[in-house]
Amino acid sequence: MIIRYLNRQLELPERASVLKVLRHLGVLPETVVVMRNGELVARDEILYPEDDVEVIRVISGGRLP
């Protein structure tokens, strides 16, 4: 599956839960929301190789240097 996060694009060949994808990215679950094919998904959702996944940061007020 294609995963877009912070203007980066990664590819995961296998199915995985949202939480597993976030762990792979090293992202805390409370700091992002995940969209699959343009739709919001919960953390226990399973993502499949054909999915287009976007991980959106929710923290505002700047970014770490």
């Binding site: 805390l28 923290i59 007020g61 700047g62």
Partner: peptide
């Protein structure tokens, strides 16, 4: 994010609280 806000103090605090 605002292009001038990189490294702002608030965001460091948010990061610590998120952890």
């Amino acid at each position: 994010e605002c292009p001038f806000s990189t490294g702002a103090t608030t965001i460091s605090g948010k990061h610590a609280l998120d952890l």
